[in-house]
């Protein structure tokens, strides 16, 4: 067990309050967090479930076969995974050098640029995408992989810049200086010291970017549909054309990659050797 989890447990133990209040709090948490998930899970196997009945009227796997038998779904899954991976890659290539510059260099307009990255998220997304769409019509990017990719990358710029910038800034300069002193060139210092130490932050940013791209629906629908369909945009179609049990099945399918990724990242970032390195004084 790492020190971090030990410490976290200790502080959690201190925070917990006994008595009926904590019981109530626990029940509320279960209801609010697990309730909708349970509803979703039951719904995916329900024959039908109408208002006055407390439980479903019967159980069936029909909705699963509807979804899994839909040949467009396979392509949507493929599209989603490939697009998310590509988005993370492109975003990393563009944003990581920017993040390093924000963290390590002082230049004109640095703060403005840094704050400006948020501007993208400050506007209502749909309005932004409509404007982008009119631009893309002119550039012949509508309905193309490139167009969808650009929209996805735009959505990840904030994560991919801010989190790694903080990670780069958190690498003590003396560690880099020590490497210089040992005889390393600037590039070697980055490869051997700065990058490995900032890696946990970069991984977090990559996971968040992957999930953001995986869940992105509005822009993809507007720019890509009907030629390029991802899981979220395919879901729109399915939900409109089938009973809502199908939506439940689809939600569960859509959640699988996200949950798997989060669990993997959790294991590597929180419990792994990467976290250990940060305990140095």
């Amino acid at each position: 067990m790492t020190m971090i989890t030990k410490r976290a447990r200790k502080s959690a133990a201190r925070l917990s309050f006994s008595g009926p209040l904590s019981g109530l709090f626990f029940v509320l948490m279960v209801v609010f967090i697990l309730g909708p998930l349970a509803w979703l899970g039951i719904r995916a196997f329900a024959e039908s479930w109408t208002f006055p009945n407390l439980g479903p009227d019967g159980w069936t796997l029909r909705w699963w076969s509807v979804v899994l038998g839909d040949e467009t779904l396979g392509r949507a899954v493929q599209n989603s995974l490939a697009l998310a991976a590509l988005t993370v890659l492109v975003s990393a290539c563009i944003c990581l050098p920017a993040a390093y510059a924000f963290a390590r260099y002082e230049f004109w307009g640095r703060r403005t640029f840094l704050i400006g990255l948020f501007a993208l998220n400050a506007f209502p997304k749909m309005g932004l995408y409509v404007t982008i769409a009119s631009l893309f019509y002119a550039l012949n990017l509508m309905g193309t992989v490139m167009g969808v990719l650009i929209v996805h990358v735009l959505g990840t710029v904030v994560f991919m810049t801010w989190i790694p910038a903080a990670a780069f800034a958190a690498v003590p300069r003396s560690l880099e200086e020590a490497a210089r002193d040992a005889g390393a060139t600037k590039l070697r210092v980055f490869i051997s010291v700065t990058f490995p130490l900032a890696l946990p932050g970069i991984l977090v940013a990559a996971v968040m970017s992957f999930l953001a791209s995986f869940d992105e629906a509005q822009g993809t629908y507007l720019i890509g549909a009907p030629d390029i369909m991802t899981m979220p945009t395919q879901m729109y179609t399915l939900v409109l054309n089938y009973p809502n049990q199908v939506a439940a099945v689809f939600s569960i399918l859509l959640a699988i990659p996200s949950v798997a990724l989060l669990l993997a990242a959790h294991k590597h970032i929180v419990g792994g050797t990467l976290a250990e390195g940060f305990q140095i004084k």
């Binding site: 560690l175 130490l197 990467l274």
Partner: peptide
């Protein structure tokens, strides 16, 4: 041709 020992030691934690 000099080598330095830093105040905070600057050991690479990884």
């Amino acid at each position: 041709p000099s080598a330095m020992v830093f105040q905070n030691y600057a050991l690479w934690p990884h």
